[in-house]
Design a protein around this nucleic acid. Structure first.
Lengths: 154, 154
DNA sequence: GTTACTGCAAACTTTTTGCACGACA
DNA sequence: TGTCGTGCAAAAAGTTTGCAGTAAC
């Protein structure tokens, strides 16, 4: 939790404002979950957020945290890190490559690109640790999902 | 499964050879799981691999697939896509940033870099879909884990 | 013949869901 | 006051583990 207090508060207000704008009720629980995520820079999992919030709201339940986080994610206010929901996926491709990820359906396609292969780790990275690989992730909507969307505007 | 047959076979032999070199027994089950992953380019989850293998080895159990995939991953022959094992993690940082991921402990740190921000999606990506964001992922060993490793060579 | 691997079943973890009560607007 | 959100409990989904029999070396 090294996010400066003012930055955390700013993020939390953005969350609250967005929830209100979308017609969600500003409940005590939602505000506290939003605040907890906002002040964290460790990319926490739900369990961690839960423990943090519970210090201030001892009666909150784990499933409320799950629901609130899902709501914030749906509104695009927080992102699932390297998000492909569901089970762990495996990659047997040992050649240097990058990924295109569809945020709608979870499709992942390999992408070969000498230009992207040239991406260098910035110097600051050395402070964090030893970099062993650099890959680029493109996120967006795949052709299939785009077609579905335009055909039957749900 | 658009991996050409010869490429799939090549990958499968690499898997088999590596298993043997590391002293693992080349069982029927392991070879078939290895082959199934090798011929797939859809970044499958364990359940999918299981279904594929079961067509050829109807008696194989799901947990054997889990164990084999874990073994292959430990040997570095397959990678967990955007791998941070365990629960889903969330990111409240809406500013443009990149990630450093420690493959040992799962630590994720944000990385700000105007240079990385300049990374462009290659033209070929347009064939896959609409790209909405481009982020760079650095994988490696964090300072903490490196220290632990050098102090008490386990 | 040993020992590692497998299949089975059960446990564990993470996440989702149905329902009735309570709180926000 | 009406409806949405919460807490509880149970279930579902994904993954791991102990054990006894089986197969690889």
């Amino acid at each position: 939790m090294t996010v400066p207090e003012h930055e955390a508060e700013r993020r939390a207000s953005v969350f609250a404002e967005a929830l209100r704008a979308q017609g969600f009720r500003l409940t005590h629980q939602r505000l506290e979950v939003a605040r907890e995520i906002a002040r964290s820079d460790t990319h926490p999992e739900v369990e961690t957020i839960y423990r943090g919030v519970r210090e201030r709201v001892p009666t909150i339940s784990l499933d409320t945290v799950y629901r609130t986080v899902a709501t914030l994610a749906d509104l695009g206010l927080v992102t699932r890190v390297d998000a492909i929901a569901g089970a762990t996926r495996y990659d047997a491709n040992r050649d240097r490559h990058h990924h295109f990820v569809c945020t709608r359906c979870g499709l992942i396609r390999d992408l070969y690109s000498p230009i992207l292969d040239g991406t260098q780790a910035p110097e600051e990275a050395a402070e964090l640790g030893t970099v062993e690989s650099v890959t680029v992730q493109l996120r967006g909507i795949c052709g299939e999902c785009k077609r579905k969307e335009s055909s039957c505007e749900r």
